[in-house]
Design a protein around this nucleic acid. Sequence first.
RNA 1: GGCGCGUUGGAGAAGUGGCUUAACUCACCAGCCUUUCACGCUGGCAUUCACGAGUUCGAAUCUCGUACGCGUCACCA
Length: 555
Amino acid sequence: MDNNLLAELLFPQVTQTIEDLEQRFPKRDLDENAKVTRFAPSPTGFMHIGGLYATLISWFLAKQSGGVFMLRIEDTDKKREVENGIEQIISVLGRFGITFDEGATGVGTANGAYAPYQQSLRADIYAICGKELVKKGYAYPCFCSEDDLAALRSKQEQNKEDDLGYYGEYATCRKLTYEEIKAKLEQGEKFTLRLKSPGSKENSIKLKDSVRGIIEFPENIMDIVLLKSDGIPTYHFAHAVDDHFMRTTDVIRGEEWLPSYPIHHQLFQVLEFPLPRFLHISPIMKLDNGNRRKLSKRKDAEAAVSFYLEEGYPVDGVLEYLLTVANSDYEEWRMAHAAEDYHNFKLSVKKMSVSGALFDLVKLNDICKNVIAALSQEDVIAGIKAWAAEYNPEFAEYLEANDEYFRKTVAIWSGGGKKARKDIFKWSQVAAEYDYLYQEQYNSKPFPCYQLPENFDIAEIKRVVNEYELRYSEPADSSAWFAGVKELAAEMGYCTDMKAYKADPTAYPGSVADFCTFLRIAITGRINSPDLFSIIQAIGEQNTRSRLKNFIVSH
RNA sequence: GGCGCGUUGGAGAAGUGGCUUAACUCACCAGCCUUUCACGCUGGCAUUCACGAGUUCGAAUCUCGUACGCGUCACCA
């Protein structure tokens, strides 16, 4: 068959050639070490934490090499698409401080010389490449229906074939003559364009993955679909065409793409495109019934990036956690460069792990605690307000109306420095964790929620609280307050000298520490809280008294 | 089932043939500091690197096999 004739029959509207595309999208004028990377999501309205992870790595590698970072939208599956999908991706990434040098900026809009960056807008480009492959004898139209393909599969399953799919002898449409094709087209039959794979299982190909090293595969033999019947390309074809014409130097993507690498390798080969570098990222896993599995969109709330925003995790904390997953020596770097911006960390491809890391929320929390603890009071206030404005309007309203009081309460537990408290790791904790500070004015949560110590009798605790309430008078300052507490504690038999107490704990009902714990429980409802005196001072005498009384009557 | 990837402590991991009696971080435990709560500090936490065999004077590091886990085999990405 004359391939040129077939190409014209299939793509009569296409007049340009790959040569034209090479000129339209010229090679980039960049330093040879500069990396051009991209994030290429489908706009399904869901940003996975793994996607953020991949983005972060791609972004670092591009930026640190003086390269280019792009956003390409892979909207080739209209069924899964979601409204505002593109905007959501851009906005969520923006919240994490990730911006693009070029790429889609919204539906149909873009910034950069290699536009469009939205695959659904690049149909002409794929058609040109498709036509070229037909001319070279590397592609042909396939008229098989879904049913035909299903029948083929079950036949192959019965034959116990190792490879299921459209290939070799099974690829019936390969054998169609020009006349048969023409007749089908004239009857209005739709076709998919398939690769005519020149591969053989006997041959092997090698991938030099940037983190995994050399991986060997048998050559691809599948006649995969290049263009769907609606003319939209499949991922594989779009990847080869776009990453070539966008001049990507490093394809960074999830490990799930590894098995289809032979297809991509072959596509680059038949298209006569030079191969970019590849880096396959291991997935972020979760332990489920003793087994590891990928973080799942359906089962795990923490799989969604929006989760961290809603919960009020500081975005830098999330990013720093992801950095430790990428390069575990990030933590050492962070300790050595406490004040430095994490963007200055040199991300190393060599140090990236090959096996999938378990997502560790506890560690994330620890990192976020440190991030918040290092913040100035003003930044803490701003962080809380910004979070509340978006996710807890009721609390935001309260903060707005009680700004002065709110600032006073924040001063109790924040402010950075060496002795910073590490009570909270996300903004949503503020109202919950410090509910005793906002009880009278903002009742988002029922109070009290007393936590009682295990080794003391409730009657004894009540005795102490009652006595304290009777003697209570507004303290002048912190040391006067504590002196009073000590005096009463001693009077009630409690040991006020910690050293003496430790030497013989059985000689006393408890220590002054225990004594304070009782008061703390009555006033704050919990065993741990910031400095008690500061709290008393913030909430005022009246509230302090009523809480002490309330504790007694409610137990 | 085919193909591919992986397996160092509870978690993330460093380590690529002798410098490792396996770093560092989180978690956990003990203690110290301390006028409460924290913060901080010190110490403990793998006689051993999935298992088996081999190469070597020497192996977590090299080779082979086994087991287990994961991924993938669409007109989805």
